[in-house]
């Protein structure tokens, strides 16, 4: 009874949706898209830092998912698998844009240390206009995240926003658990530093 109630509240499980999709159920696929759209979009946006491009890539992720879902055998979680697709797409997009000089990077001014190439911002990020509708805290967080490198952003989002375990993150990024742990900490420490700098600069304290 409890399981039935849980199912009614949370909807069908991922594996059930995949099973139904394999049976030709259009609504199952739609439900998967609905269920994962924000997670996929968030990761794309964090990685690519451009809303329109993030949306485009997020859509591509679901098209790719559509084509390969029939192969999904449930040996890993659907969410983990989708994140791997997302990361691959984002990397591809990044490389493509970089090669086409659409994604040039400039070092941040005032950061001091030249040996930190990861502290970069894109010449075309979300931009001030795109952030106007967001709260001050959201803007602070987004700006701070932008100053981390892609992998750091991804790790933080996967852990702190999506609540994935170290093991799941490791599976997605193909990293050992210990590496995830150290990189996550490094990313958090850097983010904490950036946030504190920004908060001080904005006289929030």
């Amino acid at each position: 009874m409890l399981l039935m109630l849980l199912a009614m509240v949370s909807g069908p499980s991922d594996s059930e949706l995949v099973r139904r999709f394999k049976g030709g159920d259009r609504r199952a696929y739609e439900e998967i898209v609905r269920r994962y759209q924000h997670r996929v979009f968030t990761m794309c946006l964090r990685w690519l830092r451009h809303e329109a491009i993030a949306e485009e890539v997020a859509q591509d992720v679901f098209f790719a998912l559509f084509r390969s879902l029939a192969d999904f055998r449930g040996e890993s979680q659907l969410s983990t698998w989708i994140y791997r697709v997302v990361i691959n797409h984002c990397k591809n997009k990044k490389m493509y844009r970089f090669r086409r000089s659409e994604d040039r990077h400039e070092p941040l001014e005032g950061l001091g240390r030249d040996d930190e190439p990861q502290r970069q911002i894109a010449s075309e990020g979300p931009g001030t206009d795109a952030l106007l509708h967001k709260s001050e805290a959201e803007v602070l967080v987004q700006r701070a995240l932008e100053r981390l490198d892609e992998e750091q952003r991804a790790i933080i989002v996967m852990r702190d926003v999506e609540d994935l375990s170290y093991e799941e993150i490791g599976e997605i990024l193909e990293l050992p658990r210990g590496t995830v742990k150290s990189r996550l900490h490094r990313a958090r420490a850097e983010l904490a530093l950036i946030l504190s700098e920004n908060l001080v600069a904005q006289d929030v304290f």
Binding site: F41, Q59, F62, L140, V141, D160, L191, A192, L195
Partner: peptide
């Protein structure tokens, strides 16, 4: 503190018509 800020404000949302576009 950093983690809590990200938890609270790190989520972004796909456009309202995202699912329709994909489908």
């Amino acid at each position: 503190g950093a983690r809590e800020m990200v938890r609270a404000h790190g989520r972004s949302y796909a456009p309202a018509d995202f699912v329709e576009k994909v489908m």
